[in-house]
Nucleic acid binder design. Structure first.
Lengths: 295, 295
DNA sequence: TCACAACATACGCTGAGGTTATGATACATG
DNA sequence: CATGTATCATAACCTCAGCGTATGTTGTGA
């Protein structure tokens, strides 16, 4: 950095070289012509050579001046490009939402169109996370788990109700209906790896006051998204969190099996990363998600 | 240019990003730490985003900060390179000598080794000019012609004596010696195009108090360098300016024909382009050429 | 828990760099 | 060749942008 001359001289020279006269450069830089003259003279003293040949009017750029002009054009151009990109990104009002992948896939993405319509001036960026991954930064953070009693600003999303669902085609094949079914003779879809974090069948049966059938058939999956896709494909019955799969229940792709349901302390919770200090954009997105989840 | 933020902010950020702390950047920039802090804060306000994450100590650069650092590194790097080259060239002490091509070819170039040995710290640049060309700029300017009575600092180089010379092989073939020769039965080498500027045979005979032989054979050339080369090749007899062809006369490649000689007002004159205001390097080169021409 | 280092902010001060006025000079035009 | 115009350089004067110091806040490591 100590190798560079003063930027006031470089910018004065750059303007004069592009405009052709010191007078025009002064107009661009919003200073007087003598100010430009002195700046360039100081630069020439520093460099030890002339950048303009003053024996002509207007002054003619020298070869050294042309060399420097090219370097400044390229160097300043690169900096200008990056600065413009940074400014534009800063002005484009991006809000990042981080959520578990199941929530993203089945609740958030289906509603993204509505969300974006509600905030046409914002760019919504979704970061999906799998269970067990380290928390990633977002403006709005949605997590699954037990309530954090210290996070007073955390909002619970969706219901605490957990109930079995299945594809109607599956029930048909089994000669069952949502009203009349036998859980002991169906295939239960499970996610054993996430057992400690998720509401699983044994817990559900116990919470529903029922005895889990012995020797029941099951299929296990490593992610909730895969499990739900298997259910949608008619592979068995699985547990749904109240609210997460509403869109499938509404379209009839899935049906809720009638009968007892269970409740869980676990659930989805949403916060703004900077809490009450978060900007208005973030607060508005958080509010929208909260309201939509309460419908 | 208006797109760029202030360079005091950019340079402060650049130093902080490279050093890792604002405190270290302050040391590089020779300002206090609060000065760096304010500069970077002003830059961040201009850009509309944070370049450092202050929730850590030392502050951690953000992604936008990394983007900007890369652009500054590249942009400033290019400018630094060119500035260094310009500074080095300015310090390398170049002196340019402009002279007629004949003078260059037969007097200056043969002595260039001595000249460069005398000034090892200087770079001597020779610009050779043909007769009739527009004057080209040089620190030391050597011209041929009549003395310019207004150029009081102009120095006459070499003798005013003009005399015939030839290759000894040519004289041999003609059965002549430098002492015993007959100019009416030789081939005279001429340069008719430069007649008005140069000392030609008719003028020489007249100045020597002799009658030019009628019907003498001659060969004409467009440049002095070509004429001299023809003479060296034994093509005839030609007029030499006292001093210009000394090296050939000393080695015996050419011999002076004894007998009358002529004098001319015309000659070679040397000046420093900026006169007495010229730098010491230029004055020294002019002095050396002047002294060498007087030997 | 404490010491230290790093960063942010308030306040007062000054000289770097601005302006205006004016002179010098190259260039175009009549 | 004289004249007007535009461009650049320099002198003199002025002021406020940006500095330093003092001090407060906070993250980090022992």
């Amino acid at each position: 950095m100590r190798q560079l001359p003063g930027f006031s001289g470089l910018t004065a020279f750059y303007a004069a070289a592009r405009h052709g006269t010191l007078t025009a450069a002064a107009q661009e830089l919003n200073v007087s012509q003598p100010a430009v003259s002195r700046r360039i003279a100081a630069l020439e003293a520093d460099l030890g050579c002339l950048l303009f040949d003053r024996s002509h009017k207007p002054a003619q750029i020298t070869q050294q001046g042309r060399d420097l002009l090219q370097a400044l054009h390229s160097g300043f151009g690169q900096i200008e490009n990056t600065v413009a990109q940074i400014r534009q990104a800063a002005q484009s009002r991006v809000v990042t939402v981080t959520a578990p992948s199941g929530f993203v896939a089945f609740w958030l993405i289906p509603r993204l169109g509505q969300l974006e319509e509600s905030f046409p001036d914002l760019t919504i960026r979704i970061i999906s996370q799998e269970y067990g991954e380290a928390a990633r930064p977002g403006d709005v953070v949605i997590r699954f788990g037990l309530p954090d009693l210290e996070a007073t600003e955390e909002r619970r999303l969706l219901s605490t109700e957990v109930f079995p669902v299945a594809s109607p085609l599956y029930l048909d094949r089994r000669g069952m209906t949502p009203e009349q079914h036998d859980l002991s003779s169906v295939t239960l879809l499970t996610m054993e790896a996430a057992r400690s974090q998720w509401h699983d069948w044994p817990s559900w049966f116990q919470a529903a006051g029922m005895v889990m059938p012995r020797g029941v058939r099951s299929l296990d999956f490593s992610s909730y998204a895969m499990l739900v896709n298997a259910g949608l494909a008619g592979q068995g019955v699985f547990l749904a969190w109240g609210g997460v799969l509403d869109t499938f229940l509404q379209t009839g792709a899935l049906v809720r099996l009638h009968g007892p349901s269970a409740s869980s302390l676990r659930g989805y919770f949403a916060t703004a990363r900077d809490g009450l200090a978060a900007g208005q954009d973030v607060q508005q997105i958080l509010d929208w998600i909260t309201k939509e989840a309460c419908k």
